[in-house]
Design a protein around this nucleic acid. Structure first.
Lengths: 225, 225, 225, 225
DNA sequence: GATGAATGAGCATTCATTCAT
DNA sequence: TATGAATGAATGCTCATTCAT
């Protein structure tokens, strides 16, 4: 229970150590994990505290109440994303690259996050609690979803200008269609894969990416040669 | 408050007895609406009862406890779907129709449900609560998702056999990719559209269908003429 | 613990009896006793419930929260007093009686209440919590203190008009001076007499009334004969 | 927040060390103000500390716990009163003065305190919390009320011996009757005047004193000339 | 079948108190 | 001496569940 200090020397003071800088983050991590796993209402602050290695009351030193903790969790994940992708797309991706490649790089980047970081779980969480906490949903939409979609739209419009993507596609709607498989797989991972082994087979990542790319590039209809 | 029926004649036992058989269904409807709107934990049985026009205690005459009611709600929506689509696909759709058209008819049918019936809200609900109630998630997966996906898979395989769909596509994965936009739009409708007017614009249904079809058929890359 | 039913016959249903009409009053009585004894904050709802023979949660069937219960207690004592005294003074006391006698009858009446009913304890309670619950203090002032003082003022003015009471006295201020001993004794009974036997001797009721009357009638200075 | 003293010269160690001895008194002042204003239970030690310019924990360097602080506050006000008045009455008031004048000087002196120093608020506090802290009530009674009443009693007895005050008055009871208006007005100031502007009009100090004196001297019944 | 009064376990929140620094 | 992070017991309040009628 008590972290063992395997340093041979002075046996540094353990219990009740002043961790005033680390605490908030530890609490956020614990809270995020539980909120994502169980949802807002089913998460007891006592469990959050226990997981963070403190007692219930300690939480209130850092967050006014449960809702504030919840909001902080959402914002913590939102914050580092702001602008990050935009910069990446501008600087990290050759602007003369083929439009589809630019799009694909972006989707791969997001897939990485959605499938292998808490962001995926958070997306589920936000959707589940959206109607209970409208402001939070609004914030998430405005700061995450909207900018993200805008980014895709720009790539699509660029591709259309270059004559590579069909002009008939409406960028806004297409952007949502294009990312749908990412979000969907992420949600299924968070929901069914955990509880249902059958589901997880069907979500094999490699296969997913291969088919996703194929379908996205060329659609269902076979090209005539 | 309650309209009194003080008619001297036959004194038809309306209000009271009329509903005896309807009670369970009324409770289910009320519960579904609230579960979908607020989630499992945030739904109080007292509110369910009030909406159904009965008292809290009455619920327990029909359902063992809150979880049983929840399960019944999920199953109630699942039940009528079982086999229905399968039959429809066999009988209602010309088997000699073009594979893409068969697929498209199926997707339109599901879109109708997801966008305009409680099924959409239920999908959100199930995902949100999946980790809290694994058995329910399993049931939903086995009875709804799995058969549905199997249906799409068959259409895809059929299209491949006829040489219309690319043989390179793995049917299982492709099925999920193909329906992702439907589920995604449904989830967004349930989550963000309610609270964020900006979001709802971007989800215009007609535009959605047009672009969905276009993208699905031909993909992003322009066909050479 | 369980009240024994010493009736020889049918052993009437005891536990969980429907007392829907009696409950609120039982709760109010219990609450009043504890609020008066311990003050607002020091009174735990669990104790109120226990004294009323129910559990904590039951209180919330009748009162929204602790404050509502508190307010109800105050109002319950206030309510029956409204207008009662006024009527009594008009009807019950001969209007041709000597002004001092009319005043004295009124004071005796109030003394009876303050010394031998919960009203005395309530006065202490209201004063102690006035700054914490200003609205309650206002209500108490407007409904109890103000009308009561107005009553005394009228008697005084009447006495002045008849040339019995000195015209130099300002009725409003005199009214307060006249009742001060009543309130004071009541407060001391609630505060010190309970905890300090020495104090209680000094508050002997008969002696109090005799000296009160003497002092009030004739003042400290001996009358020259 | 805290004004920085960046003077280059002697750098007098003001803020920090200046107060070392003042701390307990500062804490007492802060505590008294809050106890009087809000009552015992509603006063949070954190607020006391904040008002005294220290941290919560610091309080415990000087007082064992909340109750000790409370007791200290009561005693702090009691202490300076002990014997003070007695001496004043002996030395400061001509012993050959008219008995009523001696009494009146004493009452004026007390009125000054009750109306214009924290003593008034403290009286309310003590009464409100008497049943919660019997020992404190006892101390207050023995050290403040009892000596004070004894003082008045002596003046009264003296007046009776000189044939100025009616022999029929019982000194102990009369003493309490005589001071009642002072205490009453003080209590009303602490309770209602703060929250109710109507109440404060009725408590005008000059008018109070004039009528108090008149009533006390001569009573309600007009003297025959 | 239906009611609704009553229950009691459970949770968020507060705050006096402690203690390592 | 002073700090302030941490504690934990206490308490108001909620709500699923029960049961006598």
């Amino acid at each position: 229970m008590e972290a063992v200090t395997n340093e041979g020397e002075a046996a540094p003071p353990k219990r009740r150590r002043r961790r005033k800088e680390a605490r908030p983050q530890e609490l956020l991590d614990a809270a995020m994990a539980l909120f994502i796993e169980r949802g807002y209402a089913a998460t007891r602050l006592e469990d959050v505290a226990k997981r963070a290695g403190v007692v219930k009351g300690t939480i209130y030193l850092y967050y006014a109440d449960k809702l504030a903790l919840f909001t902080a969790v959402v914002e913590q994940v939102i914050a580092p994303l702001l602008g990050e992708d935009e910069q990446w797309l501008t600087e990290g991706v050759p602007s003369d690259a083929a439009p589809f490649d630019r799009l694909w790089l972006l989707l791969e980047r997001w897939g990485e996050r959605l499938f292998h970081t808490p962001l995926g779980g958070l997306a589920k969480l936000v959707m589940a609690e959206a109607s209970n906490f409208p402001e939070m949903a609004t914030v998430y939409h405005d700061r995450v979803i909207h900018p993200a979609m805008a980014l895709v739209e720009r790539v699509i419009i660029d591709g259309q200008k270059r004559g590579v993507f069909p002009a008939a596609l409406q960028p806004k709607a297409t952007a949502r269609l294009v990312v749908a498989p990412l979000l969907q797989r992420s949600l299924w991972l968070s929901s069914f894969a955990v509880v249902c082994s059958e589901a997880s087979e069907a979500l094999d990542e490699e296969v997913f990416w291969a088919n996703y790319r194929l379908l996205l590039r060329e659609g269902l209809l076979r090209r005539m040669v």
